[in-house]
Simulated assay, not measured.
Amino acid sequence: MRLLFDVGNTHIVIGLFKDNFINTWRIGTKSFETEDELYSHLYPLFKREQIDEIEINSVIISSVVPSINYILGKFAQKYFNTEAIFVNSKNLNNMKLNVDYPNEVGADRIANALALKKYYGENAIAIDFGTAITIDVLYNGNFIGGSIIPGINTQMMALFSKTAKLPQVELKFLDYSVGKNTIDNIQIGIIKTVVYGIQRLLLDIKNEYNTHFNIVITGGIGKSLQGIIPEFNNYDPYLTLKGVNVFYEILKGVD
């Protein structure tokens, strides 16, 4: 059984994989400072689902938070007697990173690209709504880059923290475009410009490469945006975890 981690700046998505995904959970990235605290979060979750920890023989991690990688490595050694495997730009036998600096590509983006290739075809785009929004483009089976945008909540928090009177607002896509109150103005100004900006960017990518791309959205906020424009119809909450698992299969030569 494989224990998979998708470590983001705000949350960590954790999954168990055997023949398929058995369970998934989310915890806060800053909710632990040691390997023992991390285990204290997972133990009751395993217990609740009657999971036998002895069956876990591999720990595979995609992390964009280098400061906790040491803790994750110690966790794998102490509690599962195995070396943690971290997703990286090496050993990608079936996919090239056609970018200027392959070693700088984030582990989450590599995992997304691997999952795209296995589950959505050789021409596909992942839009990952997190603390930052990453757009990852797979073209002819290879990762060719994309773009990074400040996340919707990141933009909202920046506006709230830098202004004296503007309130925090909920994530809500409005069906009109002229706000009549402060909350509407913020929701329209941030959410609609992000959504429609991405929509135009996807059109530009399609035209630039003269190719149809399968588009997949993921990330915690992605569910709230599913279906609001045609490009956001396909939501896969565990795209990155799937890619983490694909990385392991490539590394171990598993069919």
Results as ranks from 00 to 15, higher is better:
D136L: 02
F160P: 04
Q187L: 11
L239Q: 03
L203S: 12
F17E: 00
H212P: 00
A76C: 09
K223C: 12
L116V: 09
L171V: 14
T134D: 01
K96D: 08
K165G: 03
N93D: 11
F232K: 04
N153T: 13
G197T: 09
N88T: 09
K242D: 01
P66V: 05
P230V: 08
V254T: 11
I85T: 15
I191A: 06
Q226R: 12
N23E: 13
N142R: 08
G227C: 05
K180H: 13
N233D: 15
G130E: 02
L174Y: 07
F173T: 14
K117P: 01
I250T: 12
P230N: 12
N9T: 12
F17K: 01
R109D: 02
G106Q: 06
Y238N: 14
G146Q: 02
E249L: 08
L138C: 07
V137W: 02
T134R: 01
L97T: 04
G73S: 15
Y79K: 05
N123T: 10
T29A: 11
Y101D: 11
H212G: 08
M1Y: 10
L16M: 04
I68P: 00
Y70T: 13
I61M: 04
V169K: 03
Y176C: 03
S31N: 13
L114D: 02
P44S: 13
A124S: 15
F80P: 00
F129K: 02
Y70A: 14
N185C: 15
G151D: 02
I144F: 02
E104P: 00
K74T: 10
N233V: 11
V137L: 11
D236G: 08
D108Y: 06
S40G: 06
I125F: 05
S63N: 05
K162E: 08
D36P: 05
D100W: 00
W25P: 00
G227M: 05
I125H: 01
F5E: 03
N88F: 03
F213R: 01
N88Q: 09
L4N: 01
T218W: 01
F80C: 06
T24L: 04
Y235W: 10
G253D: 11
I228H: 07
V59S: 01
E249V: 08
G219F: 03
L225N: 00
N140R: 14
E170N: 15
S147C: 13
